[in-house]
Design a protein around this nucleic acid. Structure first.
Lengths: 229, 229
DNA sequence: CGACCATTTGATGGGCTTCAAGAGCAGTGG
DNA sequence: CCACTGCTCTTGAAGCCCATCAAATGGTCG
C-alpha cells in the first residue's frame, strides 16, 4: 500500500510554518479520546487510523478509516469520537488553538485551512454514501470500492483493519461481514489472499452492486487518480 | 419554529463583504443538482432543505436536513448530492470560486471560512451518529432528538419533512418509520399532533433509547443552547 | 503442542421489508 | 357544502435478511 494524498488537488505540505509534530502509534493505541478538547487536528502520514465512539449498550461504532493523506480530528470544541491506530501509524499533528477562537485577525491562508476541512468532509461523505446502501452485500461492495479507489495502485487492495472493525463501521456483525465476503468470492467479484488482501476480479460487478450512479463505473476500469468526492 | 444559528458560537453575519444573494424556493424545488459545479455554498435563512442522491436501482438516499442557520453545499469541485427545498425556504447564497482555487493570497479570515466548513461538518456528523444506531426505534429516537436539540424552543418539535423523507434519511421504509412513531407514542415518549408536530413527553426515555452516552442526557432536561457536536 | 484469538460457517429467531389494504387529510369542482 | 380524487400516513400479514447462538477451522505465539 502506497500512501498517497488522495483528496482534493492539494498535495503540497500543509502549513509548513505551523508548529507540527510527527507522532507514532502502535496498533490499537489511542490517539485522542472522545470528549477531549479538540485543540489539534491530524494528518495520516503512514498507516491507518480509525475513529470510534461507544454507545451506552456497549456496542462500538466506527465513523471512519483514515489512510495516508487523510485528515482526522478536525472537530469543533471537543472531539466527538476517539481516534485509534489500526496499524503502526505515523501521524502529523497540528495545533489549531486558533481554529476555535475564530479570530478574524489570524493570518491563515484560506486555501490551506479550507483544504483541511474539505479533506475531513470528504471522509465523512464517503461514509455517508456507503451507509446509504440497503443490504450487507451492497454495503461491503461500496466499502471495498471506496478503499480500492482511494488507496490502491493495482487490482489488489489492502484491508489493514479486522473484520470486527469493518462490521462496526458498516453497522453489521462480524458474521454477516464474513458471509458477505464469502458471497463476493463465490460470485467471483473478488479473491481473498490472506486476511488483509483482497484482489478485485470484477470491478464492474462490484460497481453494479454498489450502484453509485455511473460515477464509480466510469472511474473503475481506467485507474482513477483521486477520490470520489 | 424559530430559525436560530445553531452551530458553533458564531452568530454574526458571515462575510457580509462577500457577494451574496437571497433566494426563495418552493417545496420540492431543486436548489442545485448532483454533479453540478460546486461554485456556491448556501446558508438556510428560513425553512428546511434536504440533500439527496439517487442510486441506480432508483432508491433515494437523503444525506441531510438543514434548518435555519445550517450550511449546505460546501462541497469540493462538484456537488455530490442534490439539494431541494422541503418547505418554502429562503437561502443565502455565497459565491465561493475562491474556495476551490486555494490561493493563499485570498484574504478571507480563517474564522469565517473555517466556521462555514465546521457547520457543514457538524451536519454530516449528526447524520453519522444517527446511523450508528441498530434498530429502527433507536434511529428514529436519535433523529427526533437531534432535531429537538437543534431546532426547538419548548417540548414540541416541528417535522417539516414527510415520513418518506425521514425513511430515506434513516435508510428505512415509510412503513417502518410509521410503525416506530406509533411505538414511541405507545410507550408515551412522544405525542403526535398533526402530521408535522411531535410533542416530547419523556425526553429522558428518548435519550435512553438513542443511548448517546450521557452527553445528550445532560442536555436534555435544561433546554440546551446549541448543537450536540 | 496447546492456548488463544480471528475468521468462517451452520441453525434458529427477530426485525425490517414487502405486499396489501384501510384511514386520514387536502385540493378540486360540481 | 360535499362528493370525488389523490396523496400521505397507518396498520396488518407473510417472507427475507441479518443478528444471535453455537461450533468448527485456521493462524499466531508462547
Amino acid at each position: 500500500m502506497q500512501p498517497t494524498i488522495s483528496t482534493p488537488d492539494n498535495k503540497q505540505e500543509l502549513h509548513p510554518q505551523l508548529h507540527t509534530t510527527s507522532l507514532r502509534f502502535k496498533p490499537g493505541q489511542m490517539i485522542f479520546d472522545e470528549g477531549q478538547k479538540a485543540n489539534r487536528w491530524y494528518e495520516v502520514v503512514r498507516g491507518t487510523v480509525r475513529t470510534c465512539r461507544f454507545h451506552i449498550d456497549g456496542h462500538r461504532h466506527l465513523t471512519g478509516f483514515y489512510f495516508g493523506g487523510d485528515v482526522f480530528g478536525a472537530d469543533y470544541g471537543y472531539y466527538n469520537t476517539a481516534a485509534e491506530a489500526v496499524t503502526n501509524a505515523t501521524v502529523r499533528c497540528y495545533r489549531v488553538g486558533e481554529l476555535s477562537q475564530q479570530s478574524p485577525s489570524t493570518n491563515f491562508s484560506f486555501g490551506g485551512a479550507a483544504s483541511i476541512l474539505y479533506r475531513a468532509m470528504s471522509s465523512a461523505q464517503r461514509y455517508l454514501f456507503i451507509m446509504g446502501h440497503r443490504t450487507a452485500l451492497e454495503k461491503l461492495a461500496a466499502f471495498l470500492l471506496s478503499i480500492y479507489i482511494q488507496d490502491s495502485d493495482d487490482t489488489s487492495l489492502n484491508l489493514p483493519m479486522s473484520r470486527a472493525d469493518i462490521a462496526d463501521f458498516l453497522g453489521l456483525t462480524v458474521h454477516t461481514v464474513s458471509r458477505s465476503f464469502s458471497e463476493l468470492v463465490r460470485r467471483e467479484y473478488i479473491k481473498i489472499e490472506g486476511r488483509h488482501v483482497v484482489v478485485v476480479k470484477d470491478c464492474a460487478g462490484l460497481c453494479r452492486l454498489a450502484g453509485e450512479h455511473e460515477l464509480l463505473a466510469n472511474e473503475c476500469e481506467p485507474k482513477p487518480t483521486h477520490s470520489l468526492a
